[in-house]
Design a protein around this nucleic acid. Sequence first.
DNA 1: TATGATATCCTTTTT
DNA 2: GGATATCATA
Length: 791
Amino acid sequence: MSRILEGLNPAQREAVINYDTPSLIIAGAGSGKTRVLTSRIAYMLEQGINPDNILALTFTKKAANEMRERIETMVGSASRRIQMGTFHSIFARILRENAEHIGFTKEFTIYETTDSRNLIKTIIKERGLDDEKYKPNVIHSRISTAKNSLITPGAYAANAALTGDDRTRQVPEFSNIYIEYCRRCKQNNAMDFDDLLLQTNILLRDCQAVLAEYQQRFQYILVDEYQDTNYAQYLIIRRLSQLHSKVCVVGDDAQSIYSFRGAKIENILSFQRDYPTAKVFKLEQNYRSTQTIVDAANSVIDHNARRMKKRCFSEGDIGEKIRIFKAYTDREEAETVITDLRDRVREGGDSWADAAILYRTNNQSLVLEDALRRKGIPYKIYKGNSFYEHKEIKDLLGYIRLIINPKDNEAFKRVINTPARGIGATTVDRIEAIAKTKGCSMWEAVDSLVSETAQDSVERAIVKKVSDFVSLIHTLSLEREVKNIYDFGMETATRSGLLTFYRTQNTPEATSAIQNIEELLNTMQEYSERTESEIRNKEREEFDRPTIEEWLGNVMLMTDMDNDDPENNNKVTLMTVHSAKGLEYNYVYIVGCEENLFPSLMAMEGADGIEEERRLFYVALTRAKKLATLTCADMRFRWGQMNFSTPSRFLTEIDPQYTESDFDLRATRRNRELNTEKEGDSAIEVLRRRYDVRYQQQKQNRPQPEARPEQRVQTPTYNTERLRRVESGISKATTTEPSMYSVGERVSHPKFGVGNITAIEPLATDHKLVINFEQFGQKILLAKLAKLTKL
DNA sequence: TATGATATCCTTTTT
DNA sequence: GGATATCATA
């Protein structure tokens, strides 16, 4: 028997050896999913499958790298020839190779969210549309949704249902913005994140030769986290697999948490329909967590109606009960968690890296970081793409982008006056106008500005400045030809004036900016070293030298997660539950388990919202190997002021035999049941019962109507005196402003349709509205947050 | 045109 | 509360 199969349980082994047939591997949390996937690939190689014929797709670079390393230890360097990477990076590469088929060049830029948003903003402005109605990020997410569903601008405009919907949403011009946005992207030789999938589909749809080539090549396709694929990804897989159909997908419907990004849980639910010959393998034994944790997680997820049949179990220790703590405030919550974490890690003889603190929203990290710093505990924090969101990084990347792809107008606009060189908005507008009339890029338009400008002195001064910029870019373009990646990066950072700009100011921000720039330059160095060694090891062709284009293409698809410093790793991890998927820790703390936070208020508006939040909670809980600790707070500093919270319904959904709590969880559960049962009560009564007794008390003690707004909570010093004041309601004055809505009024909501306002409750800076929707029944919404239109 | 002060948004999750 | 957009001023 192959050594690869040793130590696998029967289900795992079946999933590994049946590599020659379409396969659906349902892998419960902690069931050795990665092991099965890597073993399967290793086994294939051992059986003589050509690594060039294997395509393995993941969602994160981290997962891809981990898999590659593990396969390499099993079967050696053949693994390096496998096409393995994230959807976005693999298809970006394929798109570059075939860019001219779909009207791009291989130097195309990848636009990140801010680029897209800026472009949308200019389009809205150009068309003289009201940016109150046409909010750039709303428009952007609508475009994103369309692209993820493979609805091209043309198809969108032709779809009466969609355009009709836009009219009722008061954005009738949406489809025109969408058309223009795509036109401009193409003109700028740029693709946004969603394009990487959409354009791949277009390429595979329109170019039979290309499709045939890749179908021939990728005879075996493996997809990780299949439950998170969206329609665009789904169809790419379908198209590529039409010839050989040897698709293997791995996933867990219970961990589908990305519907906001277009992920369709249906993809995994209907895999067997798509591939009728598929074999199904269920990995149900959890090797990660204690029995208590697994059983508790099961008891929560049982509340979901829509799920595939499987029963996860653990044969590990029973383990400790899940602990549930309630704190007064978010600050106290953080203190409790950190103290407990410290004690646990020390007693257990574990290292800091064995503990993680998970939260629903990024901004919850602030109080935790504070507490960690005060106790001197080392921590690291994953915050999405925060590194690449720094201005100095974007600016430096802007220069490089413009040099590689001069059509990139967004890059042009970003760098022409950064650092400030006296070229103001008026000049930029003029360049833009010239570009528009000439139908060329702004970079090309600059030349005509320089030549055709009148001779008066002001104009001449501007021309001088602009032509200095032009020669800067020209010089750097030459540098790019002759220098290696790192030297070119350094020249760019220096000659652009970015480095000197930050060096001349002596602020902490400037210092950190310089450090960030240096870090970015370091990645260039590492990149070229790595590539050079690949060439030495003959894993890469001699002529295929590392290029700055390639580096840039990679960098645009990079996240903070990908830059892990391996040396300095003994740190507590802080991150969102989303980022934690796939990871595991001995001690997991899930903080902020409160209604309207986890589950989040917004998620609950959607139909499947609660179920997805519950899956998210399931993911959080199953990260823990030894011990899970859940916490909530009575009050939380949010939106600049104190808010009252009630414990999350998820806490009461865990079968109580697996939990121990420092407050009366049963009473919490009873209250909740009471609330849902008495639907017939007056709306405002239902609303009131949502708050705990303390809130009721503070309502009674509410100061007289002339309560002045200055009495609001100020800096969060959290001394006991202040706590008492908060508690007795002094500082939570309700707004004196009347609501813009009134009881009885008819309103329309984008998701719920038309409804009547049945009650209004004043809050500190907002109003709660109880609305009876004709189709969706009663909902409680915040006036400022809900996108309501008066009828 | 560059700068600092002030309004205004935004609050889910991210490749 | 914090980040960003807009405004006012030199």
